[in-house]
Design a protein around this nucleic acid. Structure first.
Length: 249
DNA sequence: TTCTAGGTGGATCCGGGGTA
DNA sequence: TACCCCGGATCCACCTAGAA
């Protein structure tokens, strides 16, 4: 097994299982990739791809595992390459952070501003995603760190450091007919309202979905978006009551 | 039937290791 | 240090299979 084989494997996966496309991106030949993938499968005594005729239709469960570790190995290899640079200049390099739209918009600007003043030569890369996407980015070492919520399930596998409290806020238009009721708002009452919230709140294992699940209730989500500003826009249109991250409010 | 995409065999190139 | 050998990577040409 060689790093080249793993590089080819990931390139094929990232190019919609199209070997020709992967070869084009890697500036190499299609037969070369085809041959190396075959050799890799022969060495592993198992198939990585499901082949439909001559085309790669899908990856096998075994292949998914191989791909997972291949990504990890390539990331680690890249990290080894960066080690030399980091040794010679501890305040240089690239710091990749996975985070949510809300954190990126409302929390990180001040943090990044301070960081950049202290480490001006460090290039910051933000990768935005939902909790599950962030989880995957951390697990595959695609990012250096993640700043997010709803990752408590990972505390057995990763180092989790509490940074600050993050809460949900309920928002509604100023002229909302039941505005007064919101002062004594309960989860039962909230479940009856049409809700506008984050798209990732619909995913299982988020604090949002768990709160409703624990109460034996199902939220009536009428609209979901990735960005708090979009949610506010639709709440103002009267589409429903908004549930957004509360730090900035 | 034609086109597209993947597989195969053989030739060539290149880098690394061994040896004189 | 120069030369030789070996193995891996790549390319080219051609074949095959499947879809339209």
């Amino acid at each position: 097994m060689t790093l080249t084989q793993l590089k080819y494997l990931i390139a094929v996966v990232d190019n919609r299982l199209n070997i020709s496309l992967a070869a084009e991106h890697l500036n190499t030949s299609q037969p070369g990739i085809s041959k190396q993938l075959k050799l890799l499968e022969e060495e592993l005594l198992a198939t990585i791809f499901v082949r439909k005729g001559k085309k790669l239709a899908d990856t096998t469960p075994f292949g998914d595992e191989v791909i997972f570790y291949a990504r990890k190995i390539l990331q680690d290899t890249n990290n080894i390459g960066l080690l030399g640079q980091q040794l010679s200049s501890v305040d240089e390099g690239v710091l990749t952070i996975a985070t949510t739209h809300s954190q990126a918009r409302y929390v990180l600007p001040d943090v990044i501003k301070t960081f950049k003043l202290e480490y001006p030569k460090v290039k910051l890369e933000l990768k935005l995603g939902s909790a599950s996407q962030i989880k995957e980015m951390v697990q595959t070492s695609e990012v250096d760190i993640a700043i997010a919520t709803d990752l408590l399930e990972l505390q057995r596998e990763l180092v989790l450091l509490p940074a600050y409290n993050w809460y949900h806020a309920i928002i509604a238009p100023l002229d909302h007919p039941r505005k007064k009721d919101f002062k004594r708002l309960t989860i039962n009452r909230l479940a009856k309202e049409p809700l506008v919230t984050y798209a990732f709140s619909l995913e299982p294992d988020t604090s949002f979905s768990e709160t409703f699940e624990n109460a034996g209730l199902k939220p009536n989500i009428v609209f979901a978006a990735r960005d708090a500003d979009i949610i506010k826009t639709y709440v103002n249109m009267g589409m429903g009551v908004g549930v957004i991250a509360g730090m900035a409010y």
